[in-house]
């Protein structure tokens, strides 16, 4: 398998991380990813990631649930086997609202979680590489991908100059477990 080289720098304070991300992008390095122990609002924007459209997917799953429920119950109770329950009309819509609502929520929630897992490639027993185990504790880890144009020593020095501690070069086998933002409009600004 192909191998890739990364320059990995650690940060201890998100207040240093923010300007660092900006500088890295301005300097034209290829930012592979930033790993953080907790969500940092605005970091995605700073990295130039586009907004997620997960919630749109959720909406679509939701209305699928709504129409499944209304469609199925209507078919079952008015066409397939119409029964008079307590003198109510066959098409007893008010009585179907609860089940319809529940299925809307169920479809939306289950669909979204599965989509989330799929998009992030998360599943039980999956192992992924995130360069520094402290990144789930107290360290913000920034990884730059080395391209042909990258001068490693210079890049390492650059990371140090913008506040990174513990900068090192790591070689990883490429694969889906490294994640990729190929489809995620990343603007690599050059000055």
């Amino acid at each position: 398998m192909a191998k890739k080289k990364f320059i990995v720098g650690s940060f201890t304070d998100e207040a240093v991380l923010f300007p660092a991300v900006k500088k890295v992008r301005r300097a034209g390095y290829k930012l592979h990813d930033v790993f953080t122990p907790f969500p940092i609002h605005g970091l995605d924007k700073e990295m130039g990631l586009r907004d997620t459209s997960l919630h749109t997917a959720g909406f679509i799953y939701g209305i699928t649930g709504t129409s499944t429920a209304v469609g199925f119950i209507t078919w079952a109770l008015t066409i397939d086997w119409a029964i008079n329950f307590g003198g109510k009309p066959y098409f007893a819509l008010p009585a179907w609202i609860p089940v319809t609502f529940e299925l809307t929520v169920l479809f939306a929630a289950v669909g979204m979680v599965l989509t989330f897992c799929w998009l992030c490639q998360l599943a039980p027993f999956v192992k992924k590489d995130h360069f520094n185990p402290r990144s789930t504790d107290d360290t913000f880890v920034m990884a730059l991908e080395c391209t042909n144009a990258t001068n490693e020593a210079e890049a390492q020095q650059f990371l140090q100059s913008i506040g990174a501690t513990d900068v090192k070069v790591e070689v990883k086998e490429t694969g889906w477990w490294l994640g990729s933002y190929a489809n995620d409009k990343m603007r690599f600004e050059k000055n």
């Binding site: 003198g87 109510k88 008010p94 009585a95």
Partner: peptide, 12 residues
């Protein structure tokens, strides 16, 4: 609104 309407509609 629904709770009030549906309960009255249902009990009839």
């Amino acid at each position: 609104w629904f709770s009030q309407f549906m309960l009255i509609w249902y009990a009839n």
